[in-house]
Amino acid sequence: MNAELPRRAWLRQNAAAVAGLVFGGAATAATRRAASPHRLVWQIDPKKCVQCGRCMTNCVLVPSAVKCVHNFDQCGYCRLCFGYFDPGATELTTAAENQMCPTGAIRRRFIEPPYYEYSIVEDLCTGCGKCVKGCTTFGNGSLQLQILHHRCVQCNECAIARRCPAQAIHRVPVEHAYRMKSQAASVTATWRHKEDGPAHA
């Protein structure tokens, strides 16, 4: 390599220092301006969810990282469970044609007449949200779509969030990685606070 002029070397060193400062400063500023640099994960707000079915089709994973979960605490143990039974069901039996779920991912367990306990077989659920629609429309809404965090690969831009018509998917602090409907109110409140807080500061 030919010997460089000292002047050029000096210029280059200064330019390198400036470049380092610019990139370092940008990265630091991007960190510092957060209210508190939370680690964030994607999650669905079930209160905003309209069960459009895109969670099943738009995830980069097949099958989707979105699954139906059953928050038993909210369940009304309806005799005619609209999450389990198809509206056109002729009998309230476990026959496939009577079930809402296209993959038979909802299992029911007899408790006592006339109550059954419904649970989701995670491996069978495709996240289509049909049962969620039934339960939300006619029941308590204890069946909810959630992004399961042992499946989600945390894309930098969630492919479902981008196509969600209700904008129900946001990044949430990892401490509140799930947003069950009963808790959604409080979680949303903290999230809103975080969104608004520093903007006015």
């Binding site: 979960v69 143990y77 408790i111 109550y115 399961l148 965090h149 042992h150």
Partner: peptide
């Protein structure tokens, strides 16, 4: 009622001593 988190259908009183299970979602891997 729905908006304030009160349920549309209250939980029944089970006579068989059934306790409502608690759903625990899978842990965050990251």
């Amino acid at each position: 009622l729905v908006a304030s988190g009160v349920q549309r259908f209250p939980k029944p009183d089970f006579r068989s001593g059934y306790t409502v299970p608690q759903y625990t979602p899978p842990a965050v891997e990251r």
